[in-house]
Amino acid sequence: MRMHNADETCGIARAAVVLGDWWNVLVLREIARGKVRFDALAAEIGLSRNVLTERLGRLVTQGVLRRSLYQRRPVRYEYVLTDAGRALLPLLVAMQDWGDRWVLGDGSLTATAAEDGAEHARVHALVGTRLPEALELPGTQGADLPVVSPTAAATVLFTYPGTGIDWDEPVPGVTGCTLENRLFRDAWPDFQRAGVDIRGISTQLPHQQAEFARAEDIPYPLLSDAHHQLGAALRLPTFRGAGRLRHKRLILIVGAERTVRHALFPVDDIPHAVEQSLRLAGDCARTA
């Protein structure tokens, strides 16, 4: 792309060289979702092989992707995000948030969703989807933990906006995060007996989650998606509140093989949703 001299020191202009192409953005979106092989990318995006080859080569040259050999005969590569590429995930999630609110929505700021909206359709389309391999997030104990338990017969993932937050303005659907964690905490023995693990996920920082976990005696891991790895991988709905993008409240029931079995969204009746997740996850564990 030819640039005017005035743009040579402009970060926006330089980033536009990387992201200012429709196909580049979609390629990065799909790689963030775990579609890292050429055929999977071509099938998902519907891009011709020649054009896809050119786009991938350009993103490798720009330092956003790197090629990783996975087959020698014939030679085949996976395309994975570099540090620079992972740093683009918050931007992709912010683009999605803007599109959900201002293009697909009516511009309202909300932490919930209408059942006939795009976010609802996208979350429920996750059923049958397999989560990307080796997806880990920082936990409250300081170490990265797998999003899906490697030992449980099923895992409940619940995302929530955040705890202990002084909201700048009233946002429909933000209240109840402490209640939700307490209800999962109180039901934890029942989940354990059913062979089910729990992961609570927000975009709060690990030390903020750790402080809450200690105060509330939370027995299951709280994971930080502050860098939006999970949000980008699953295209989870977000909203902007109290200075950062935050997950809307939802619950996913994931089987031992990392496949989403059930999706609960929107979550408006929190006690009912916790009871329902125990029943659904227990059924999933029994049939594992």
Rank of each mutant, 00 (worst) to 15 (best):
G243R: 02
L245V: 09
R240S: 13
A32W: 00
R58W: 04
L104Y: 10
H272M: 06
V80N: 11
N24H: 15
R76T: 07
W188G: 11
T9K: 13
Y160Q: 07
A42V: 05
F158L: 10
C284I: 00
L59Y: 00
P172K: 07
R286T: 01
P146R: 03
Q208R: 09
E257I: 02
T163I: 15
V156N: 09
V174R: 13
P219V: 07
A213L: 02
V267K: 08
F184S: 03
T151A: 14
R199I: 11
R122W: 03
T110D: 10
A242I: 10
G85S: 01
V123A: 00
W188S: 07
G142S: 11
V274S: 08
D268I: 14
Q208W: 05
E78D: 05
A143K: 09
D116P: 08
S48G: 07
A256N: 11
P189F: 04
R244D: 08
A194R: 08
R76V: 00
M95E: 15
T159C: 11
H120A: 10
R240P: 00
D7A: 08
H228N: 09
T259V: 13
V147Q: 12
P237V: 01
Q229F: 09
A111V: 01
R244I: 02
S277I: 06
E275W: 02
H207F: 15
L52H: 06
I31P: 05
D186R: 14
Q276Y: 01
T151F: 09
R76N: 05
T203K: 10
L19N: 10
A43T: 14
G107D: 04
V93A: 05
T129I: 08
L280P: 04
G11V: 13
L245M: 11
R182C: 13
S68T: 11
I270N: 10
I198S: 09
N5A: 04
L89S: 02
Q229N: 09
A288P: 00
N5E: 14
Q204C: 03
G173E: 03
P189Q: 09
R72G: 07
Y77I: 00
H227G: 01
V64W: 04
N5L: 08
L131A: 13
L137V: 03
T163K: 10
A40K: 09
V274R: 14
V174A: 10
R130S: 13
V93L: 07
L245R: 02
F265P: 09
R55L: 04
R66P: 01
L230K: 01
S277D: 12
C177T: 08
V147G: 10
S48A: 13
P138N: 00
D168T: 14
H227P: 00
V196W: 01
T129A: 13
D186N: 12
W22I: 00
G164F: 05
A187I: 07
L250T: 06
P219H: 01
T82W: 07
D190T: 01
I12R: 15
